[in-house]
Write a protein that binds this DNA or RNA. Sequence first.
DNA 1: CGCCTATTTGATAGCCGTCAACCGGAGTGG
DNA 2: CCACTCCGGTTGACGGCTATCAAATAGGCG
Lengths: 249, 249
Amino acid sequence: MRNVSALHLLVRKLEKHVALEEKDRRLILDLPHVIQPFRTFDYIIREGETPGACPVLISGFAFRQKLVESGGRQIISIQIPGDALDLQQLFLDYADHNVQALTDASIAMVPRLALRELAMQRPRIAHAFAVNNQVDASITREWLLNVGRRDARTRIAHLLCEVAVRLERQELVGDYGYELPMSQEQIGDATGLTSVHVNRMLRELENDGLITRNSRTIRFPNWPVLKQVADFNPLYLHVGQQSAVSIPA
Amino acid sequence: MRNVSALHLLVRKLEKHVALEEKDRRLILDLPHVIQPFRTFDYIIREGETPGACPVLISGFAFRQKLVESGGRQIISIQIPGDALDLQQLFLDYADHNVQALTDASIAMVPRLALRELAMQRPRIAHAFAVNNQVDASITREWLLNVGRRDARTRIAHLLCEVAVRLERQELVGDYGYELPMSQEQIGDATGLTSVHVNRMLRELENDGLITRNSRTIRFPNWPVLKQVADFNPLYLHVGQQSAVSIPA
DNA sequence: CGCCTATTTGATAGCCGTCAACCGGAGTGG
DNA sequence: CCACTCCGGTTGACGGCTATCAAATAGGCG
């Protein structure tokens, strides 16, 4: 067996949705790439620019983001290790949103051309990319529902549930909780709220016994009820089977 | 020249982004399909179902929609003639949202298999589909920004601007306005507001001379200022060149 | 003409934003 | 080792945007 490619998490993610042949797997793992470190808040992709490489998150977290004229920020998605940050725009001329590092992060930069050609030559891989994009689109739709039609408490709970399930699917969390590296202001930007109100709602969720917090580590003592309070139905993530986070036994 | 295929609007839309060879154009136009009529509010795709055919909107309007547990509805997008209603999910097992007719509509149902095979065999077409999906995803991201970070007045103005530009790009409107077949309640569902507040904001926009209304026909006497008030920057639509709607001269 | 739905308008309430102050932990430098 | 600083979290008071409730008006269609 060769060295483990930095891209193995990407393959793992793609294979959650589409079965790949060994050859396709190999072709992805062997894609040319350079590992580049990013610091918290570094821009990975800027709106308006044409990236020459598609970044794939190896370790650390990132987020997509758009700004309004008056300065308000909306976080569009949270990205976790294994996520491709630009497959969505592989075929567009310029980026329509920003991508920033949420934490210090290690990112594999894969030349766009190599990816596009791989997609052209290997229908199965193109298929996997398409599904990946479609799942991302589904998540964005759920966020729109979240921000448009749920109250503050529910919105925040929903966000916590989503990240938990996605991390677990990538086998990046233990059974009893995870570290969510977002400030309360960032949670607010993701849910269309202010940091002050996020703070109040987190406290409320904690007082109600639905979450516990220690620094930024979140645990879910009562996942079934939290899920209900969050109006969280993971179908939109298009994962075949998911287990719950933090259910003892 | 043959009969004009019902799918010519789809081809026109795809070609706004990706140049197609005559042969590819032909292959799309000749896709097998049956025309099916839908009445206002009819479901075209239901969440959870696996559609056997991809609907392409020929005439009339449709909208994507998701519901929360408590009954609230969020409209995810407005679809206009020429839009494919399921390319987004061509490769997913089940629909993650609903699609409904906004008006009486005529829809071409194209077998999913035929589309998938066409995409597999003709990379250029697969490319066009991918771009189409990516533009849709970009629009959803802008809607998330709209609902999350703009005030009511701006949100509504932004929606009006978007539909106007998209209709114009498909050459479906005259220079001086268009009919938006949405009730105020539906505008509310699209913007995360109530119909009552939509009503007030529309009146305000009208009083400020930014729009005029006659039944559901909207005109923009002052497009440049409206665009500014709406915080509307059409880059997210990924259209090469757009002209303004309703600018005399 | 009458019914039904959509629009309009006013009064009131409430969720969440804004403003401001304080707290607390982590890193820094003396 | 301790003060200092800074950023993020926490809390309270207050205000405003938007929701809710209710009723009247208008418009479309039999």
